[in-house]
Design a protein around this nucleic acid. Structure first.
Lengths: 214, 214
DNA sequence: GTCTATATCGAGATAGAC
DNA sequence: GTCTATCTCGATATAGAC
């Protein structure tokens, strides 16, 4: 996990000013979520913030750093929310998987900006500006692998207990997370006035049923 | 469907030279799939083609046009492959859904370049260069809606027949297509030496089970 | 810490030779 | 039809005033 301990900013210039950085992060998340990494200029982020470029460059060395900080923060939030559920002893794998999927789906809708940016990031491996930051990228990959493993462990426990049908656990987890990660791509809080709870419940039930088999 | 009748190029300068255009389309699909729309320069497309910018601009007015042509072509291919299955009379909804999902998954892997680009396109609605082409964008949306409707119809037939559990058919189709559309994001023919048939089968079974309920 | 210039440069697009 | 210049401009990033 090296450079991404909880609480420490993953990137950005050193020194204090945690609140200033946070405001930039939020503004950037909204801007990136709306237009994507390349179509979002630093000026656009500054506008969203109600400031000018100067402020942004005071806290961050460049656009790629801001982007990656949004991504890492979003992934940490997701893991911090979902991981505890996977370890609960009072529920079986089916019930835990339902709750994990339900919460993941909810986060995709309620924390839409940051999660949408995290999804974008997956396709940016090969972009030079981003690829430069090998260290942070390594953290991002590690976080993603760790998150997938949480789901894989629950699936395999379910298979052992006979609650889930036997299959390739890595692949079914990719199916399940694909369905969930796709949500930010079509869900837009303003254009799609859908009931968050209903969507989360439908997705979570679909996933658990898919794992149980027929 | 206006400007996108089958056989006619959706975009590009008028006149003959269908083969020249096709070669550009393939090269562009590979380049866009690798780096994404913005990180791919016209020079990079020309390189991939083994030519220079001049050739590209002879056939297309600009980068956005090439991109959208790749997208429309990819979506037409997908629909042309999957739609016939939905209409088959010799199989029930469960079996047809399995085959549709199986084929969709296979296309995501075997026609990886074009499909990866189509997935990218969904996030590009709001990008100015792309948004200019209202007419082609309308076609893209229509194609996507039509494709979703194919799946929705099969789901609703399955629910009527009691083969599938009753739910919001639009939402479960978004789950299913999310799982499938996510494939190009993690599947890379070179990095992921996975058995296409096995992946397609696992995904299709997961989806059909998810629809059947428990 | 925050702002207003401004340097710099990559890339889309065009003109015109061959 | 295909190429090689070349124009042009937007956006990153910096310098330095306040």
């Amino acid at each position: 996990m090296s450079s991404s301990e909880i609480g420490r900013p993953a990137l950005g210039r050193p020194g204090p000013g945690e609140d200033g950085r946070k405001a930039i992060l939020d503004a950037a998340a909204r801007a990136f979520a709306r237009k994507g990494y390349f179509a979002t200029s630093i000026d656009a982020i500054a506008d969203e913030l109600g400031a000018t470029k100067g402020r942004v460059y005071h806290y961050y060395r460049g656009k790629a750093e801001i982007f990656l900080d949004v991504v890492v923060t979003g992934m940490r939030d997701l893991i911090a929310a979902v991981e505890p559920i996977s370890a609960r002893q009072d529920a079986g794998p089916g019930e835990r998987m339902y709750q994990m999927a339900h919460l993941h789906a909810s986060m995709m809708m309620l924390r839409n900006h940051a999660q949408r940016v995290s999804v974008q990031a997956i396709e940016m491996r090969s972009v030079a500006e981003i690829a430069i930051h090998q260290d942070v990228l390594a953290d991002v990959f590690a976080l993603r692998r760790r998150y997938e493993q949480i789901f894989i462990d629950v699936v395999e426990e379910g298979v052992r207990l006979g609650d889930f049908a036997a299959t390739d656990s890595g692949l079914v987890v990719k199916s399940a997370l694909g369905a969930l990660n796709w949500i930010p791509i079509w869900y837009a809080p303003d254009r799609t006035p859908l009931d968050v709870e209903k969507v989360a419940d439908t997705f979570a039930r679909f996933i658990v049923n898919g794992l149980k088999g027929s």
